[in-house]
Design a protein around this nucleic acid. Structure first.
Lengths: 225, 225, 225, 225
DNA sequence: CATGAATGAGAGTTCATTCAT
DNA sequence: GATGAATGAACTCTCATTCAT
C-alpha cells in the first residue's frame, strides 16, 4: 500500500520493525484508519462528492477533524484510499463470478457482467474514479498510488481478457477487445448514471448484453455457435 | 437563443423592436455577454470546472464580479450557456462533415467521426456536459434549457441514426445502434480524457474506427460488402 | 413638499416659474414620480422592507434604475415619500370618519377608531414609520421632511384631542390622553403585527375598544353616563 | 441553555461527563462563546441591527469570521442567543423588584415598572425582539427556541398577572389587563425609542405611571382606596 | 432627461488545513 | 497521538449608487 506523506504514520504492510509494541500500535492505527474510511465511504455514498467535507467525515467517524490528518495527509488521500478499496471490492466481485466456472464463454460473460454490475449497482464508485482524475492535485495521487490503482483496474479486467484468449483470440486482439469492452461499459454506465438520456435507465443492461453477445460472436465460440 | 432571467437584459428573439437604439443596445449587450462567455470558456478550458470561479471569470473578462450578474443570473447559468454553445459547435461540426456527402455509409462514418472527433479534440466540452448533469441546481438548469440541450444533443446524433436507417436498419434497430454507438463513444472519450489507461491516448481513435467498422458490418452495406 | 437633493428636479408645489413649458415638464415629472411611488408601495406591500430594492422598484415602475434617481435622490428618500403618502391616507381616513358627525363622543370614537383601523388593515404602513427611525441616514430624512411628517401625524391625532376637549378635558389633560391613546394604539398594533402573542391577532380590536371605553369614562361624557 | 447546532460544540446541560478535561474544555468553550456574544451585543448596541455584520462581530471579538461559526451556526443564531440573554436579564430585573415585597399593589407596581424600566433603559433590547419576529429564517429561530423565548417573555409578565389576581381580579380579567398593560408599555417604549414625538422622551415615564395608577384603580385595591 | 452597464464594497457562509496544548 | 479552536482565503451573490452616452 502506498505510504501516506503524513509524518508519523506507519504503512500497513511494510513491517520494518518486530517490536511487539510497534505491531500493536500498527494494528490499532489500521483499525482506526479503516473506521475513518468507512465513515468517508458512507458519507460519500449518501451525500456525493461535493457535499462530503473533512468535518463531516470526522463527525461520522467519531473523530475530531485534526485526527483525520493523522491517518491521511489530505482530503484527496482519503479519496485515493477510498478508490483503492473500491477497486478491491470490484476485484472481489469479479473473482466470485468466476468461482467454479470452467467454460470460457461463461467466464467471459461472468467476469464482464460482474464488472458492469458492480458499477451499475454502486454508481458512487464510478464517481470516485472520475473525481480522482479531474480534481486531484499531485499531492493526493502519488505516482505510486496511481500505478497501484491502475494495476488493480487491470486485474479486474484480466479475467475477461484471459477468457477471450481461451476463446481463441490472440493476445493482441484480446487486449483490444477487452479495452473496447471496458470503454463500452464505462460509456453505458456514465450515461445511465447522469440520466442524460432517459432510455438508458432501463436499457443500459440490454445494451450491455447485446454488446457482450456481439463480442462472443467475434470469438471462436461465436464462430462455432 | 433562450435568455437568462437576469433583470436588465432583453431577449434576442423577443418581438423585435424596430427602434434602432434598442437594436444597437441589444447588439452591444450581446457582444458583452459573449465576451463574458468567452472568458468563462477560456478559464474553464485552462483550469477546469473546480477552479473556475465567478471572480476569475470576471477578472479575465475585464469586468467586476457584480457586472457578471447583469449577464448571467448565476454561476450555473454561465455553464448552461457554455454548454449550449458547445452543443452548437458540435452540431456545426457534424453538419459540416455531412456537407455534400451522399453515400449513406460515408454519411454514417462522417457524422459519427465528427461527433467523436469534436470531443476528442475538446475534452473540456465533455466536462461541461457532465458537470451540468451532476451538480446543477434548478435555478441554473431550468426545464426549458434542459429540454433545449437535450434536443441539441439529439440533433447531433440524428444524422447518424438516419444514415443507419438509409443503410437498411429499421427505426428501432437504428435507435438502439445509435445509442450504443453514443455510449461507446462516450466511454472511449472518458477513458481517453481521464488518462486512466495510458494506451487510450493513442488507441482511442483506432478503437472508435473498429467499432464503426463493426457497426457498418451490421447494416446491409456490411451484409453486401 | 420637501425638495429632493437631486440636481435637476423641481418640487411639486413650489412654483417658481410661470413658463408654461416648465409647468408641463413639472406636471409630467410629477406623474412619473407618482408612478415610481406607486410601484415602490406595491413592491413594499408585497415583499416587505428587506426585499424591496431599487432595482425591483424600477422594474415594476417600468423605469430603468437610473431614472429613479432623477426623481429621488436616494432609496431612503423614496421611503420618506412613501411615508408622507401613507400619512396622507391616514389623515384622509380620519377625516372621513368625522364627516357629518357632531356628537363629541362619537367624534372621539370615530377618529380614534379610524386611526387604529388604518394601521390594523395596512400593517406595512406601520413598518414604514419604524424603518425610517431606525435605519435612516441623515441624507434621506431631512429635518424639513421630518418636521412635515411629524405635523401630519399630529394632524391625524388632532381631531381626537379636540373631541376630548369638547368632552370637557382641559387642553393639557386632553394632550396627555391623546398621547397615551396613541401609545396604546401603537402597542396593540405592533404586538398584533409581529404576532408574538397569538391572542393579539383576535383580541387587539377588543382591547382597543376597551381602552377607548375607559377613556370615554374619564371624560365628562363618562362622568355623566 | 439550549445549544446551537454547530458541529463541534457540546451542550452545557448534556449528561455531564466527569472527565475533568471535558469539563475544562467545555468551560473554555462557554467562555469564548460568551465573549463572542458580548462582542455581538456591544456592536449591536452601538451600531444597531442593520450595520452589525458577522465580520464586525468577529473583529470586535478578536476572532476571524470563520471562528464565529464554531460557536454559532448562523447570524440569526447569534441574535437568538442575544435575545435569550436579554430576556434573562429582563426576568432577573423583574424578580429583583419583587424581592421581599409582600403587598400586592406594591408587587404590581414593582413588576410592571421593572419591565418598563428595563426596556426604557436598554432600548436595543427592544430592537432585538422586533428583529427576530420579522426577519428570522427557520434556521435561526427554531420552534424550540421560539417556544423558549415566548415562555421567558410570559415569565416576565407572570408576576404582574398574579399581583392583579391577588388584588381581586378574576383570572380572565387579570389576563386581559396584563395584556393591555403589555401593549401600553410597548407602545410607550416604541414611541419613546423612535423619538417620533419629542415629548415622549420625558413623558413616557409619567404616562406609564398614570396608566399603572388607573389599572390599580380598576382592582379592589383601587375600589377600596 | 433617460439609459443601463458598471462599480465596489460588503453580505453570509464554507472549508481544507494547521498547531499549541 | 489526539484535540478542536482557529485560520485565512475562498466562495456565490446583492445592492445602492454613479456616469458616459
Amino acid at each position: 500500500m502506498a505510504r501516506s506523506s503524513a509524518p508519523t504514520r506507519r504503512s500497513t504492510v511494510q513491517q520494518d520493525s518486530t517490536d511487539p509494541r510497534d505491531l500493536r500500535h500498527q494494528a490499532l492505527a489500521d483499525v482506526r484508519r479503516q473506521s475513518v474510511l468507512d465513515a468517508a465511504r458512507a458519507t460519500f455514498v449518501e451525500l456525493g462528492m461535493e457535499k462530503t467535507s473533512m468535518r463531516l467525515i470526522a463527525q461520522r467517524a467519531g473523530y475530531t477533524v485534526g485526527a483525520l490528518y493523522s491517518y491521511f495527509a489530505s482530503k484527496e488521500e482519503v479519496y485515493g484510499a477510498l478508490l483503492a478499496e473500491s477497486l478491491e471490492r470490484l476485484n472481489q466481485r469479479v473473482r466470485q463470478a468466476l468461482d467454479g466456472v470452467a467454460d470460457p464463454a461463461q467466464r467471459l460473460r461472468g467476469s464482464a457482467t460482474a464488472f458492469f454490475g458492480f458499477y451499475r449497482e454502486n454508481p458512487r464508485d464510478l464517481d470516485l474514479g472520475f473525481y480522482l482524475f479531474q480534481g486531484m492535485t499531485p499531492r493526493g495521487l502519488t505516482p505510486e498510488l496511481n500505478e497501484k490503482l491502475n494495476a488493480r483496474l487491470r486485474d479486474a479486467l484480466q479475467p475477461t481478457q484471459e477468457a477471450l484468449q481461451e476463446l481463441g483470440l490472440p493476445t493482441q486482439r484480446a487486449l483490444e477487445e477487452v479495452t473496447a469492452l471496458f470503454a463500452h461499459t464505462v460509456g453505458l454506465l456514465v450515461l445511465s448514471h447522469t440520466g442524460r438520456i432517459r432510455m438508458f435507465k432501463q436499457a443500459s443492461q440490454d445494451l450491455f448484453n447485446t454488446y457482450l453477445q456481439q463480442l462472443l460472436g467475434r470469438t471462436s465460440a461465436g464462430a462455432k455457435g
